[in-house]
Design a binder for these strands. Structure first.
Length: 599
DNA sequence: CTAGGGTTAG
């Protein structure tokens, strides 16, 4: 806590306060403080001013009222200085300001926003002891805290308890917070059910309710459902969408590559006089970059600047990623270096993006350099940074370095997640260390990490590629034994493994099982099986498979197609198959010169 | 004097 001396030292930026406060610094005009305090609080723009004003207030006798202290507390909280705000709250208690439900609710909110909902609940206990009946604001803050910490079951329990024990009447914010939690865990169905419950209970869903669910549907690529809800909101409830609603929908469309509709929606929102903001533009930049359309992303940034919406760190992080994806590392680094010139400070994501770019482009030394540099700047590498770097080491065959970093990650308190685990298993397999991957897999045993099909897909693929199809078969069996459902990819990698070993009978059997199991083969499965057949000169089922592909609307890829052409040229396959093959050539390959000379 | 929804990295 800063004292008065420190305040003087900081000087300069707070001169208006000094001036305003000078009237009572010598204890002569305390009355003027009380009348001025609200206006002083409104002028607060930084933490130092707030802390010093608090200091002044706490030395004033009689003490300013709890309302004034709470106003100040609120100002600090709005600046997101949650721990300072909590500190001030504690000071208030210590100097005997009688805290009320308002200050309590702010303090609880601060605990929760700091991922310390446990302390929030402790304060709830204080409410009861001090005969401050907790209100809906307090419970909403606690509910939000649980959601923030991903403690969704406890959030649901609290929500139900509020209603059952009539602790408070849940309002639209309570519902919205619970819905946000459900959406965060991908439970759109229950979120929607809660929206319906609101209607029943006469607690009108509002734009936040709708936007939250619409956003979640978009994230799950359920864009049609999202628009259905959007129309319901607009036409049945008469709620007008705002910039947030539009941004979610635009992102949903962009992520599905439906650019035309996205730009139509962008135009629609501008027609409604809703201006896209920095986040809307950033969504566009990010989507373009992910598609490799960096020029379009740059154009969006230029539009932003023209319109006076300064791109922020997130915008630039996305663009860095876009350059990295295209292997344009010089541009990526140049942008990285220019971020500081724009008055922005690179964060963990910025560093991780560039580091990822260097890894993906196999410049591991530069990646390591970024890794060291960020630590030097006081930025702590997080799970993503570590995972990226570990993957980079594996990609260049530096398995020992990968292992060392994995251990360091543990030591630094960064817990590997599913993705890290997958990277390690994949890395080991790709470096011919299938046995090590299996040992790790068995070591992990029955934990949650091993209940993900992706893990099995990696091991089956890895074992097969190392010529250990027997191990792959055992892992595949283990997956079903565990009650997990293989997905298309699982079947496909297993079939690919069988084909590699010339076990076409087993491949075919598994292929046939897919439809039976309600997991129909996709175009990749067909290509894998066809390649297996062709490479093994097994032509019996080929024509039938091609016909099925045509029926299902699938197409061939360039490499499978060239195998066919080679076999036809060698007279191994009949030219009559060309007609069928012609139907399976994807549009983008039609102008490929290497495929022009057949027929 | 107190509350809620949208953007980035593996």
């Amino acid at each position: 806590m800063m004292n008065r001396t420190a305040f003087i030292k900081f000087g300069g930026t707070t001169s208006f306060l000094l001036h305003s406060l000078s009237s009572f610094q010598f204890g002569t005009h305390t009355a003027s403080l009380h009348s001025n305090v609200s206006s002083l609080i409104h002028k607060i723009t930084n933490l130092n001013d707030a802390l010093n004003l608090f200091d002044e207030m706490s030395h004033t006798r009689p003490l300013p009222s709890v309302v004034h202290f709470t106003q100040l507390l609120n100002a600090v909280t709005k600046m997101k200085h949650f721990s300072s705000s909590l500190h001030l709250f504690n000071q208030m208690c210590a100097i005997g300001v009688p805290v009320d439900k308002y200050s309590m609710s702010i303090a609880i909110k601060c605990c929760c926003q700091l991922y310390r909902s446990k302390d929030g609940f402790a304060l709830l206990g204080c409410c009861f002891r001090r005969a401050i009946p907790p209100n809906v604001y307090i419970f909403n803050a606690l509910l939000d805290g649980l959601v923030l910490e991903d403690r969704i079951l406890e959030a649901e329990m609290l929500f139900k308890k509020l209603i059952k024990q009539k602790l408070c009447e849940p309002n639209v914010v309570t519902y919205n917070t619970m819905i946000k939690g459900l959406c965060k865990f991908g439970n759109n169905v229950t979120a929607l059910a809660l929206l319906r419950l609101m209607e029943q209970k006469n607690c009108k869903p509002d734009i936040v309710t709708y936007s939250t669910i619409i956003d979640s549907l978009c994230k799950d690529k359920l864009i049609d459902d999202a628009f259905k809800l959007f129309k319901e909101m607009l036409f049945e409830k008469g709620i007008l969408p705002d910039v947030i609603t539009y941004t979610s929908l635009i992102r949903g469309l962009c992520n599905l590559g439906r650019w035309d509709e996205a730009s139509k929606l962008l135009k629609e929102m501008e027609d409604e006089n809703i201006s896209p903001d920095v986040q809307t533009f950033t969504v566009l930049v990010d989507a373009f970059c992910k598609e490799g359309k960096v020029e379009e992303a740059e154009a969006v940034i230029n539009i932003m600047i023209e319109r006076g919406k300064a791109p922020d760190l997130v915008t630039y992080n996305s663009l860095i990623d876009g350059y990295c994806l295209r292997g344009e590392m010089i541009k990526a680094k140049k942008l990285f270096d220019s971020i500081t010139l724009r008055g922005l400070v690179p964060d963990v994501v910025t560093y991780s993006s560039l580091l990822n770019g260097y890894c993906k482009n196999l410049n591991i030394e530069k990646a390591e350099q970024m890794f060291r540099e960020m630590s030097g700047k006081g930025l702590k590498p997080d799970v993503v940074t570590y995972s990226t770097m570990i993957q980079g080491f594996f990609q260049v065959g530096r398995c020992v370095a990968a292992r060392k970093l994995f251990d360091e990650m543990h030591a630094q308190g960064q817990i590997p997640n599913e993705c890290t685990y997958g990277i390690v298993l994949d890395g080991l397999c790709n470096n011919h260390l299938v046995e090590d991957a299996l040992s790790l897999f068995h070591l992990v045993g029955n934990s949650k990490l091993n209940s993900n099909v992706a893990v099995y897909n990696i091991l089956i693929d890895g074992a097969s590629k190392n010529g250990k199809v027997d191990i792959a078969r055992v892992v595949f069996q283990g997956l079903t034994d565990k009650g997990l459902q293989p997905n298309v990819r699982t079947y496909t990698v297993m079939i690919s493994g069988f084909c590699q070993e010339g076990l076409l009978g087993e491949a075919k059997l598994l292929f046939l099982k897919m439809d039976e199991s309600g997991c129909p083969p996709d175009d990749v499965t067909y290509r894998v099986l066809l390649q297996g057949y062709l490479k093994n000169r097994h032509y019996d089922d080929v024509e039938m498979l091609l016909q099925e592909m045509d029926d299902r609307g699938y197409s061939l890829d360039a490499s499978t197609l060239s195998l066919f052409i080679d076999d036809i040229a060698a007279g191994l396959l009949d030219r009559s198959m060309l007609k069928l093959l012609g139907k399976l050539v994807p549009k983008e390959l039609l102008n490929d010169p290497s495929l022009c000379d057949w027929e």
